[in-house]
Nucleic acid binder design. Sequence first.
DNA 1: CTTTGACCTGTGAGTTGCTCACAGGTTTTA
DNA 2: TAAAACCTGTGAGCAACTCACAGGTCAAAG
Lengths: 143, 143
Amino acid sequence: MKVKEIARAAGVSPDTVRFYTREGLLNPARNPDNNYQQYDADDLRRLRFARKARQLGFSLPEIRSILDQADDHHSPCPMVREVFEKRLAEVEREIAELQQLRKRMKSALGIWREMPDGTPDGHTICRLIEHWDDMALATSGEE
Amino acid sequence: MKVKEIARAAGVSPDTVRFYTREGLLNPARNPDNNYQQYDADDLRRLRFARKARQLGFSLPEIRSILDQADDHHSPCPMVREVFEKRLAEVEREIAELQQLRKRMKSALGIWREMPDGTPDGHTICRLIEHWDDMALATSGEE
DNA sequence: CTTTGACCTGTGAGTTGCTCACAGGTTTTA
DNA sequence: TAAAACCTGTGAGCAACTCACAGGTCAAAG
């Protein structure tokens, strides 16, 4: 398979395929005639795995190390579980944060809507953001 | 106020203050003696506004234009409301996505825990990610 | 047989919102 | 008076791509 073909098969852009190749996640062979990259079914599996892992929040270095360990045929990935659980906790934190944010935004919008003139204009909103002083919200505990 | 002072007053790092200054969000005067930046109360208000707006998801260019318009004393920000509502929709989409993700992750973890050997190891998880084929999940509709 | 168009190659830069590092000037403190 | 702590501007680094560029290759059409 050439770049475009594997890209299509995995549902990503050719640029992404090239990028992953650069980053060492994919190790295609070469066509000696024209020096084109030649991906095989295993590359496709790796690529698909990578995409799924990305969706779960794994970073490219993490994915690469998982893939590399799997390649070495010895204990595939003892760190994966840990990362997975860490990621889950992170996702939950993100959700909580966003829900807080949504609540604030909606209530602001509600307040604005109830205001004398009906729909609030940008002017009003500017002032409200400016005086939005009860906004402690997830800024302190960044990592 | 000098950099460190305003930074502290707004709860950000001096680097951020400098960055915002570079980007034109803050227009401090200069101490002619030593060429140090001199921020005043207005800068502090701008900075605080900027931080709050950032937390609401406004981009720096957006914030700058809001601030600039407010400076010009003419109609401060008619686009703000629109951006605000767009942002709210986005937040809700993100929440939905993350909740989907969490559901998947938890159910996977649940399945793994129920498995014969009790706690799943990395090995198992690798395979499961690999075969996680029902994962259509918010990948298609990126923007 | 040549030309067009679609594909391939590698590399380098742009994106966002900071953060960090560097080299040197200034001010404060001991 | 010398060290520590601050200030200055600038340039690079981060993540995960995406896009652009200049040039090589290939299939089919004229």
